[in-house]
Simulated scan of single mutants.
Amino acid sequence: MSLFDRRPALRWVAPGAALAVVVVGTQIATRLPADAAVTLPHITAAQLLTQVESAKPQALQGTVSVSMNLGLPSLPTSMTGGSDSAQPLSWLSGTHTAKVWYDGAAGSRVALLGDGSETDIYAISTGVWVWNSADRSVEHIAPPVVTGNHRQHPLKSNSTGTTADSQALTTPEGVASWALQQLDATTAVTTSSNVSVAGRSAYQLVLTPKTSGTKIGSVRVAFDAATKVPLRAEVYAAGASSPAVSVGFSSVSFTKPAAGNFDFTPPPGAKVTVQQMPAKPSANSLSSLGLTAPTVTGTGWASVATGTLPMTNPNVTEGDSGQGSPQRTSNSATSMTQLLKLLPTVSGSWGTGHLLSTSLFTAVLANDGRYAIGAVPAQTLYTALAKH
């Protein structure tokens, strides 16, 4: 059982399915303005972790500030989708805002706000719904069909973490959950000066990798002093004095959201795509999508995930979705092809491909579809690919 499973309070506001790689979900923002230190009763790191583990989920609503500063090259609007908040590449740079609502079994909702557009992600009793106002599209992931009396609520995580990670890009809980999974012998855990986040006093936990084989220098998580809910998470690159990532509440209220915040019915004329969530994801279900389950090598902060992606046709052009393929899928494939062309070509005994290197993580996509990703230097990925 992982630490994430033992600490359910750390993931209560993160329902659905996200960017596929947890490491990417941890690197989203530049630092929010620093708050003045506050005076709180002294507790040790161990005491804080114990209190976080025993904390009960809290109904809340608030605004989260998200921005990105990973040292990536500027991406053209045609690739990022401009103000379309549903396009993942649009969140790789700039500053973004999300609204969040949570109320236990009633549901969870995150609204990603764009310039003139909005993408809402609902995790409610009828499944996961994703509404994109830019193109009036709806994606519905229906609850799994199960036999017997047992039915898994869509807010609950399955063994793969699929439903737990969808909003890691937009909530402090998503970053905090990933970081706290790293608590083992390779991590030094301390506390630093208490802070004020969104007007609330908070204890700050600092996780520092003991290994030099990672690009991450430290992770700081601020927990609300009263509720122990994560209010802000910051990720620092090794040797950096300011964070490369910060996801935090700019305003938060621990009051029960109105029930209407969790109601969703596709608007008239919306394009609806329906998928059935498998009762238990398996290697066969991944294979049907052209995917293979990733293999993880190494430990802790220096671990590497390797796997194989389905290869897309580089000749597919935007506006030509192909028979039976949604327009958005074609556009996404085109954007990824364009992105790869901007990345340097690398080669070695493992093959030839393209390298994406940021301040916090590195990824390699080989021409044959194999990939490797981790918060490690490129050479570590090359070594892993040579064995995959």
Rank of each mutant, 00 (worst) to 15 (best):
residue 363 A to R: 10
residue 329 T to E: 15
residue 150 H to W: 07
residue 194 N to C: 08
residue 377 P to V: 06
residue 196 S to H: 02
residue 100 V to I: 06
residue 288 S to E: 12
residue 223 F to M: 04
residue 181 Q to T: 07
residue 57 P to D: 03
residue 5 D to G: 08
residue 356 L to G: 10
residue 106 A to C: 00
residue 219 V to N: 05
residue 38 V to K: 10
residue 142 A to H: 12
residue 309 L to R: 14
residue 17 A to Y: 00
residue 91 W to L: 04
residue 248 G to M: 02
residue 284 N to E: 13
residue 14 A to R: 00
residue 261 N to L: 03
residue 175 V to I: 01
residue 328 R to A: 14
residue 218 S to E: 15
residue 255 T to V: 11
residue 73 P to Q: 03
residue 88 P to W: 02
residue 173 E to L: 07
residue 279 A to Q: 03
residue 123 A to F: 05
residue 302 A to N: 06
residue 383 T to E: 14
residue 2 S to G: 12
residue 269 G to W: 03
residue 275 Q to F: 11
residue 259 A to K: 08
residue 280 K to R: 09
residue 88 P to C: 00
residue 181 Q to N: 13
residue 214 T to R: 09
residue 144 P to K: 10
residue 130 V to K: 05
residue 33 P to M: 11
residue 11 R to I: 11
residue 198 A to R: 04
residue 34 A to E: 11
residue 259 A to E: 07
residue 258 A to K: 13
residue 308 T to S: 13
residue 238 A to K: 12
residue 286 L to A: 08
residue 266 P to D: 10
residue 38 V to C: 09
residue 312 T to R: 09
residue 161 G to E: 08
residue 144 P to L: 03
residue 201 S to K: 15
residue 254 F to G: 01
residue 305 A to C: 01
residue 251 S to F: 02
residue 302 A to C: 02
residue 1 M to S: 10
